[in-house]
Design a protein around this nucleic acid. Structure first.
Lengths: 363, 363
DNA sequence: GTGAAAGCGCTAACAT
DNA sequence: ATGTTAGCGCTTTCAC
């Protein structure tokens, strides 16, 4: 590495004035061209664009923002631990899905991970210092303080998930009804009469609504529905969960990370998949295909949700009217982890033997 | 969703002038306090902070930037397909690792995915429009055009990987020497005398240096080293790879995503792991623990690399002198995928039988 | 220790 | 159709 006197930018930064001069016009002409304003002749516009290109100039975002335009940045604040974030393929898909539509409108994604207790402060800060033009809310909880905070700040925001009653934040929802039916049809056809559902976390808004829909759909079919929670902090969360199955022969889990863990560990606890227990995940990703057996999963149109959310935020920022949106297309991908219900339900109390392979590699 | 006349921000934005007025001082006094300048008495400073808090005011980033300060944003531009991005746990770890040190200095992460052909333009744009204050470069290739581009733009940048000869971009390197030795000791002790290495891609700079170090270390031990490439576009990349093993009884792959795929598919091709073939990955993540057998892997100190890189960028932006940095601590986690070398090498030409489970779930 | 005022680079009235 | 100019909110000399 050399002695770059870095920071000491030599060449002064190109400004609109230099571009204007080079093109032989006023700065406002340049501004007009770069903002799609009509009052410039085609010839002049071309000359201006040429000059800008020659100088490799682009409007300075800060100046632009200062004089009223949007800063073209979407804020994504995730209240997750590093660990939870890392093992969540859904978030990866979301981020990947956001960048393309954002780039298409000249925006970028500003993201961060925060501890739950810092969450509100980060939203406040990013908004008041004008770091971002709006936010995308994920992992919305029941009674989430963010909805009122953002309304209070009058910060544009769009959320992923079911609309929150009493909030004016537009929601992008993935229709779950069809998928729930398809899922229960699938498991029903395989002979399962008692099915457990495990949410991502009892405080998450979507957990509750899925629980309700699931229970209702099961009831309609005369199938027993069991709603369980995932105790991430249990000594052995998988064993803990399997111990509470209470005769269920199939289990549906939000999140592939958890589902993958069940698939990986269950055999070591004496529960064979899918022979003893069928496992289905409510999200899908490449992880489903590298576990064995491969994971039957409900694939959500994450990319379309992202695209829709970006469009809504952009409209909000422009001051347009915006309403909730629903994207559909959650599809059931049947793979190896779901199979015929066993004639005898799996042992209610799994072998207490220590796991063959402890959760090494976890951090 | 209601009829929020969004965008039509009612309450005019709080400015430094209002804070100054409320505290009974001039705007420059406020500015001084918020920039740690000394010329303000403790009492006045307290009054000013109080006023700012009351008004929930924070310096506007755009104005600040316009008058010379940094915009406090790090750019991360990934030339990846959505798909490659999504299945790369390393990038997840990196992103997660970046946000914490960034937050500590009041910065945020601006990231995007681009197609390779748009890469240069995005760097250009983000820099010239002053969207970011500097960049973090990953996936640096041999002859990477970005190094000269960024020097030409005089944009602060730091890269992950071995320093590029002739470039002034500081590099944060993870020392691989010890890990390479540890790895070969491990495999050697298990009786492997012929070992294959598979890089992430022949154009990536780190692939070449690892290949060289690996080959050298193997040579010193009288172990045959084989350097193979991963043909992602082959009809069945795993079968393709296994078909080229040429008697190797162990294989070391950069990237857990690929390693996980080998582990998942090899058995379906008649190659048992680790009985017939030991598999080791050059990166580690939670994925290593959900595949079966679990994956033996070299765990890199990603979080420390991230922390170091952030520190370097920040120094560069401040105009400080910066040199390359090396972080160490790549550790070998021995898990289930590496075992004693088989007495007979695995079939050179794996069963041509169609795979039991096709790569369903891939997208 | 404090305040006045000149920018920073751009946008958008308003003039011409 | 093109140019002039007053801000946008903050930082930072430079007087006081």
């Amino acid at each position: 590495m050399s002695d770059t006197t870095a920071g000491a930018v030599d060449r002064r930064r190109v400004t609109i004035a230099q571009v204007a001069k080079r093109a032989g016009v006023s700065t406002s002409a340049v501004s007009h061209v770069f903002n799609g304003r009509p009052n410039v002749s085609a010839a002049t516009a071309a000359r201006i664009r040429k000059a800008a290109d020659d100088l490799n100039w682009r409007p300075n975002l800060a100046s632009r923002k200062l004089s009223g335009s949007a800063g073209r940045s979407l804020g994504l604040v995730l209240a997750r631990s590093r660990d939870t974030f890392q093992r969540d393929p859904f978030t990866m898909r979301l981020i990947a899905g956001l960048t393309e539509p954002l780039a298409a409108i000249g925006w970028s994604l500003s993201m961060t991970l925060v501890r739950a207790e810092d969450e509100a402060e980060v939203y406040r800060q990013w908004w008041t210092e004008q770091r971002v033009d709006g936010f995308l809310l994920v992992d919305v909880r029941t009674d989430d303080p963010r909805t009122s905070l953002l309304q209070h700040l009058s910060a544009p925001a769009v959320m992923l998930g079911s609309p929150v009653p009493g909030s004016t934040i537009p929601a992008v929802t993935v229709g779950d009804a069809d998928a729930t039916e398809a899922l229960l049809d699938h498991l029903g056809a395989l002979g399962h009469r008692r099915i457990a559902r495990v949410g991502d976390g009892p405080t998450l808004a979507h957990t509750g609504s899925r629980d309700a829909r699931f229970t209702a759909a099961a009831g309609r079919r005369g199938v027993d529905a069991l709603v369980l929670d995932w105790r991430a902090h249990a000594e052995d969360p998988v064993a803990d969960l399997l111990g509470r199955l209470d005769g269920a022969t199939a289990i549906v889990l939000d999140g592939e990370a958890i589902a993958a863990e069940v698939i990986a560990h269950a055999p070591e606890l004496g529960v064979r998949i899918p022979d003893d227990l069928s496992v289905v995940a409510w999200e899908d990703s490449w992880v489903s295909s590298i576990v064995r057996p491969t994971l039957t999963a409900l694939d959500a149109p994450v990319e379309e949700s992202a695209r829709t959310a970006v469009a809504l935020v952009e409209r909000l920022v422009r001051g347009d009217e915006v309403t909730d949106a629903e994207v559909s297309g959650r599809a059931l991908h049947v793979r190896g982890s779901s199979g015929p219900a066993p004639s005898v339900a799996p042992t209610t109390t799994p072998t207490q033997a220590t796991r063959a392979t402890p959760t090494e590699g976890d951090r």
